[in-house]
């Protein structure tokens, strides 16, 4: 098994493991950020360049350093490889550049964006970006297109990670959207207005790292940090039926796939589970979802709480976190 050292930490990994995967095994202190790579989507990654790292030693066999920074999500480990991520000023500088590039045309409309609070671009910019902007040019706009009554496309927010295209290619049949045009005119589109409608099309919302693809059924209903995630499941003939329900009071505002600590969906879910089952009675509740991210969503929500295996609606109502205050807002 090849051995790799990343920022001074060493781990043995299986053949074919990428630098990014190895870094994630070592923990979030050394894991580079990733905006386009997605574990469950084949051939994803390599585009955004946020996960660039420095390979200071190629391998035991060929110890020469790699001449350029490499995309850690697409570079396999060689035995004896040494990698610098946060310990390399060169990497930090390059990443800062990438963040700046991703932001120069981003509308920064976070106050009205449904993704705010769980947006990877927000986190990336906060952690790796610069506080100042150096661009003064008009930001890119696109002609608006409608892609159906369940999914909202905001092209101006898109960072062209290609994840949604790969979802359509790999887990739905009959892809109708893709990347059209070229260069900085590139856009996610159906070209001629067409509805993206497919049993699994809703997953494009979950994989989108920004607010380019959002859930129309949840649109402007609540800020995500005012909702409470609960793990739940149901028997479904199309998918695993394992989801996260996002509650406000006892109302399910939104359903998503369950995400791991890297923000990636563990199992893709079908549109029936996502859009059509909005009653608690449709679901078996497993308990509050642990959000392992320094986000307001997770902040002190469940401190000291014992998580039962299964909860009934009445149990949920009894939980302090789901009580409504007099304004109708959920109290934490």
């Amino acid at each position: 098994m090849p051995k790799v050292t990343i920022d001074g930490k060493t781990i043995e990994v299986a053949d074919g493991t990428t630098i990014l995967q190895a870094a994630r095994m070592l923990g979030k202190e050394v894991a580079p950020p990733a905006m386009c790579f997605y574990t469950n989507l084949k051939t994803s990654g390599g585009y955004c360049r946020t996960c660039l790292v420095k390979v200071s030693k190629g391998s035991d066999k060929d110890p020469r350093p790699m001449p350029k920074l490499v995309a850690s999500c697409r570079t396999p480990i060689m035995d004896g490889m040494e990698v610098q991520n946060n310990t390399s000023p060169e990497v930090i500088d390059a990443r800062k550049g990438v963040v700046e590039f991703l932001l120069i045309n981003h509308p920064l409309d976070c106050p009205v964006c449904d993704q705010a609070g769980e947006c990877h671009l927000q986190d990336l910019s906060y952690e790796n970006g610069s506080a100042k902007t150096r661009t003064e040019f008009e930001r890119r706009t696109f002609n608006k297109i409608e892609i159906g009554n369940k999914i909202q496309l905001h092209m101006t927010r898109c960072i062209l990670c290609y994840r949604c295209v790969k979802v359509a290619e790999q887990i739905t049949d009959g892809r109708v959207h893709g990347v059209i045009n070229r260069g900085d005119h590139s856009e996610i589109s159906t070209y001629i207005e067409e509805v993206i409608d497919n049993d699994f099309s809703g997953n494009v919302i979950d994989v989108c790292p920004v607010g380019a693809l959002t859930d129309k059924t949840f649109r402007f209903k609540s800020r995500v940090w005012f909702t409470k995630p609960m793990s739940a499941h149901r028997t479904c003939d199309k998918c695993s039926g394992k989801v996260t329900l996002w509650y406000q009071g006892d109302e399910v505002l939104r359903t998503t796939g369950r995400k791991d600590q890297w923000g990636e969906v563990e199992e893709f879910i079908c549109n029936t589970c996502r859009f059509d089952k909005k009653l608690t009675s449709d679901w078996t509740i497993e308990g509050p979802t642990i959000v392992d991210k320094h986000s307001v969503i997770s902040a002190n929500h469940y401190e000291g709480m014992i998580i039962p295996n299964e909860l009934t609606l009445n149990d949920i109502k009894k939980l302090p976190l789901l009580e409504k205050n007099t304004d109708g807002n959920t109290e934490f």
């Binding site: 585009y47 955004c48 590039f101």
Partner: peptide
């Protein structure tokens, strides 16, 4: 081509 961010932007 617009694939990667540094070149595209």
């Amino acid at each position: 081509c617009g694939q990667c961010s540094p070149c595209r932007e």
